[in-house]
Design a protein around this nucleic acid. Structure first.
Lengths: 123, 123
DNA sequence: TAACTGTTATATTAATGATATAACAGTTAG
DNA sequence: CTAACTGTTATATCATTAATATAACAGTTA
């Protein structure tokens, strides 16, 4: 698996794992219907505890990125709730944009940033 | 002061306070050179401990939003470090955009969101 | 049956958020 | 000069969370 955990990061391990899996889905490295490694295998791979992986998987299930099949484990299965997602994005982005404005980042520069991130993922 | 703390939020109080002050600077409710309420006054106003406010102020100083003057307390004084700010924004936005992509949020919708947030602040 | 899935239950350790009380060193108005 | 105010620092306590560990349970499957 294509996971890299930074153990010196201030960001919780399960959050890092969660985010990297979401990015993997966004970039089609993980496709709809594919299974994630079992919590035990993933834990061994990246050198963390089983429960830390389980926490990440549960969070992904909670937010509609995977579903759990007794037979195949955690399977990529996206619930489309665009409205809710956009509201969440707005909430998270507001303080980011605010600090950008204060620090002199223009609207165009912010949009350029969006383009950069989309370009890095959609192709 | 125009601060509203949500005590039921999962977000730390000092982070809420910090973010709301940044938004206040972005919207010119707080202008360069203005003093923030003293840590004790602010703490009384919003009903939290002095140290919680101090933590927010220290964080704002650390990130170049205010400077501390022995005479006037915490004063709005912005260090422009656009490069650093954009890198931070990129870092924080990447997983947000990724979940947006997975949930079907288009590039245009993301930019529309940026416009909405800018419109809500710059005027 | 044996090996595998996610899940649950406990327990412990370390770190963090928030609180509280207290003091210190500058600053400033009366 | 005194009194009241600044941010800051030092402790201490309590609750929550992140991460670990060991163990077991209920389905699934070769």
């Amino acid at each position: 698996m294509f996971i890299e955990i930074d153990f010196n990061s201030e960001e919780a391990i399960y959050v890092q794992l969660r985010n990297q899996i979401i990015v993997a889905i966004a970039t089609s490295q993980l496709k709809e219907g594919e299974s994630l490694p079992s919590v035990r295998n993933m834990a061994d791979d990246i050198g963390v505890n089983m429960h830390t992986v389980n926490k990440a998987y549960s969070s992904l299930r909670q937010d509609g990125f995977v579903k759990v099949d007794r037979r195949r484990g955690a399977v990529v299965a996206v619930d489309i709730d665009k409205m809710h997602t956009i509201n969440k994005m707005r909430c998270m982005m507001k303080p980011l944009i605010a600090s950008g404005i204060v620090k002199g980042v223009s609207r165009e520069e912010a949009k350029k940033l969006i383009d950069d991130i989309y370009d890095g993922m959609e192709l």
